[in-house]
Nucleic acid binder design. Structure first.
Lengths: 337, 337
DNA sequence: TTGTACGCGTTATCAA
DNA sequence: TTGATAACGCGTACAA
């Protein structure tokens, strides 16, 4: 396949100068209709396509945003991506999704590549929000916004959801329904979300005057359906006199696994065990027993993150902000019997 | 924030010429350890980052692949993306995911942008495999592979799965289980997959010597959970003497919706209705009643597509290939009672 | 071993 | 209205 044609080729074919071709592209009003037609014809003949690398080299800035995410298979992240996509589109930009698969090395690869590409801005849900790679990006001057994670220092913009509040909402809901023995299912605690939601759960529990030891923590190794099933086995292993009557799962995948395990074992939800999930993914409402869940404004999260990164890119007086959204409980049959 | 520093800045700071800096980057063996150290120190001091646009302009080729997909929220596509990601990684490339959201205009935007970026190659699951935008990409010389769709002409490489066979496997499985009234649920028929799987279903049905009118087609407007629920209502509206005893759904989302609708209505799966889905997404095995489903080698699909696009990019003698993978039925409780 | 000079494709300035 | 030319940052052939 021959080398793609350039403005120079177009100019030659249209018998005009290179500057005129450029004018046709960038200030068409300055060029006479006749020559413009000639040039446009030449472009069609040659199948001319602007070379974005050259434009960018010249302009010093690109027309793309990127979102580096942990796991494209988790609907939470793809919804966030969708929100960012909409914001990017209305700013006339492309959004590239990069899938780190939870691996620090691949995440670092992508970040480095994006910085080298001089993208306008990067959104990232990092494996570890304190990793030095993020600071490297900052030092190289590429705007970066942390999504769904937070850092104590105010070196970056971030958008997140109030997970402590989310945990509180979930447990308050169960307490109001009269439950006095509840299981908290989730882990590992290295994940900030897990810690925060547990903290919120404990706040609500204490506020209701319930004894500490009636809020059982069942630790999992990951936030997956399979772990949910295994947690279900452990819950059922608890003697019935001490068994919780409700469970709060750190995310919907766990809740779905738990639900499946219970119905396999012939138990009924919510009669034998009420369940609250977290994230309100599409499959939550579509489960065999529709799942009560804590909904996060996912699209809004992505949209706001994209706006912040653009502000950082364009406004010299940009101030970093930590945006915190408010979650909301959606009650369904898994707690309403 | 100041302009990012260039090789020129590094050269000035290290008191060497610009060519030497370039040598440190590209042929470090040619430069003496002493000056090399000096240059590397200057790079660190300035936070120097190569400008990929300039490199690419010079080199004429980029270091990225892209996958333009229909719906990032469908696990099928993200699994394909994962396979492509692995292949890209082992070739030392980045893979950018672009989400068209099933909209032809956004798909066209992305394809145009990628061609302008001169990416090494594009994988695409197009809204319409016959759309002219694909031919435009080809004419501009960017290698392109069609994923999970096919075209009759051999203008492109493509990777797909044998959907006729998949349809046959599903229905053969139901026939072997003794079902003689079966519903085919899916649509719209503008989607090639729907047509092919239906064709396969009919083949198997005819081969078993069963009468045409006992294979009922229930058309849906989309392949979503919500449509599955609505299909469920329609199935249940059929008088019990004529009601199918099994359903074959064109994808797992439909099957999950159907399953949910049935259990809401107090019917049992598979006793009242056996269900076969398609795709074998993670949630299929995790459903309240684990779903029998037709599995496609999704990661393999992505991996192979990436390999083909790289071959097209690198081998001047490249021949287009239509790769067709073989699906496989995974039997679970939704048909095994 | 190090330095100089040119070109990649585009855009913008300035002169004609 | 159109044309000539410089510059963006990098890589490389060639000269010193």
């Amino acid at each position: 396949m021959a080398r793609a044609s350039s403005v120079k080729d177009v100019a030659a074919r249209a018998h005009v100068s290179l500057g005129t071709v450029s004018n046709v592209l960038n200030r068409p009003e300055r060029v006479s209709p006749a020559t413009r037609a000639k040039v446009e014809q030449a472009m069609r003949d040659l199948g001319f396509v602007r070379n974005e690398s050259a434009r960018q080299l010249r302009a010093g800035r690109s027309r793309t945003l990127a979102y580096v995410l942990l796991d494209a298979r988790n609907p939470f992240f793809t919804d966030v991506a969708q929100g960012a996509e909409l914001a990017a589109e209305s700013a006339g930009l492309s959004l590239f999704l990069c899938h780190s698969g939870n691996r620090p090395s691949r995440e670092a690869d992508y970040l480095a590549h994006l910085v080298e590409q001089r993208v306008q801005g990067i959104l990232v849900t990092p494996v570890d929000p304190h990793a030095a790679v993020l600071d490297d990006v900052r030092r190289n001057g590429t705007p970066l916004v942390i999504v769904d994670r937070t850092r104590e220092d105010a070196e970056f913009c971030s958008v997140a959801v109030d997970d402590v509040l989310g945990g509180r909402l979930a447990v308050e809901h169960l307490v109001e329904a009269g439950h006095t023995r509840v299981a908290f299912i989730g882990g590992p605690e290295t994940i900030g979300q897990v810690r925060d939601r547990l903290a919120g759960a404990r706040q609500a529990w204490a506020a209701a005057g319930l004894p500490d030891d009636q809020l059982t923590v069942i630790a999992t190794d990951a936030l997956t359906v399979a772990e949910g099933r295994s947690a279900g086995e452990r819950v059922m292993g608890i003697g019935s006199s001490r068994r919780p009557t409700a469970a709060f799962c750190v995310n919907d995948l766990l809740a779905l696994g738990l639900l499946q395990q219970l119905s396999t074992a012939g138990l009924s939800v919510p009669r034998d065990l009420a369940i609250v999930g977290y994230d309100d993914i599409e499959y939550a409402a579509a489960a065999a027993v529709p799942l009560t869940s804590v909904r996060q404004p996912r699209q809004e999260l992505g949209r706001r993150a994209a706006e912040l990164v653009l502000d950082e890119a364009e406004d010299p007086d940009h101030q970093h902000q930590q945006v915190v959204f408010t979650p909301e409980l959606v009650a369904r049959r898994s707690t309403l019997g």
